[in-house]
Amino acid sequence: MRVGIVGAGVMGGIHAAGWLATPAQVAGFRDIVEGRAQDRAARFGGQVYDSLTALVRDVDVVDVCTPTDVHYEIVMAAIAAGKHVVCEKPLARSVEQGLEMIAASRAAGIKLLVGQVVRFFPEYAAAKAAVDRGVIGKPAVLRLARCVSQPRKATDNWFVDFRRSGGVVLDLMVHDFDYARWVAGEVTTAYAKTLGVARPEAAVDHALAILTHASGAITHVEGSWAFPSGFYTAFELAGSDGLLVFDSERSSPVRFLRHRRPEETVPEVPLPAHPLLESQYTTEIKAFYATLDHDAALRVSATDGLAAVQIALAVIESAQTGRAIRIEPLPIGDLRLGEALA
């Protein structure tokens, strides 16, 4: 299996490291920014493609790690060429794009895998498994928080361009919208406030959302790009019979307080730092490999990825209109990869 990675930024490198832990071969990288694909190829192997077409033609799997706004065109090009696709979250910038992507992948018999990586984070997976074992009974009130500093980039900081990334809601909170839905089922309404709408002059984004599930459960989601530093995540899952609590600071097993050297800079894109014998991203890529290679069942589908995008866009609409937004069922069935396509 030859994998071509489109978008050789932070996530392109992380995915490449994951693919290297599988039998797949990293065929190479494509990036529109001069030199970035070369850097990644030098580090992870593979060649540098000078066009998307060249990459797509040459590989079995196209792994899309680009800014959100170009997911659609790259995924559609890969599907048109009959190549399987791994696409970073969020699946698409709009629901319509996502519906087209899924419809095209189905029509072409192509596997479309979405990187909702939090489902592979061991703390989140363990809590989901505990819920499934009945530890908390019926989920009732969920609290999910993901608070980081605003992503910085030396050039072309697409994260802070709302039209491209969808801001903190679509780029970061999409993880928790997916997780809320995984734990407590379909979301029917969303109400939210965002700093981006309430006080655009603040120039950092921060959002609070309340989701209502068809099951009757309610979920509070906090997403922030307004934290000065760190990667803070937390959840509380309260149900009819119990409570599950996670706080990244309280469970952080290693503490190292070090003086920063004057020339030192902080990383551009904050990533969670919890020591694990295998990176969460590698766990995810290994699962993708198993699905691509032998149709192994996967814990997240493209429809899940699109449902999370749909919730995010409802949250944005609510913040913009001041109204609670009703979320209609997606007009597609949910095909579990490895089940439906096997």
Binding site: A140, V141, R143, Y191, A192, K193, A198, R199, L208, I210, I218, T219, H220, E222, A238
Partner: peptide
């Protein structure tokens, strides 16, 4: 169970669980 989201006169917002 209850979650509230409040909007203040100056545009600040706050949630209560």
């Amino acid at each position: 169970g209850g979650l509230l989201l409040l909007t203040f006169a100056d545009g600040a917002f706050a949630s209560i669980d």
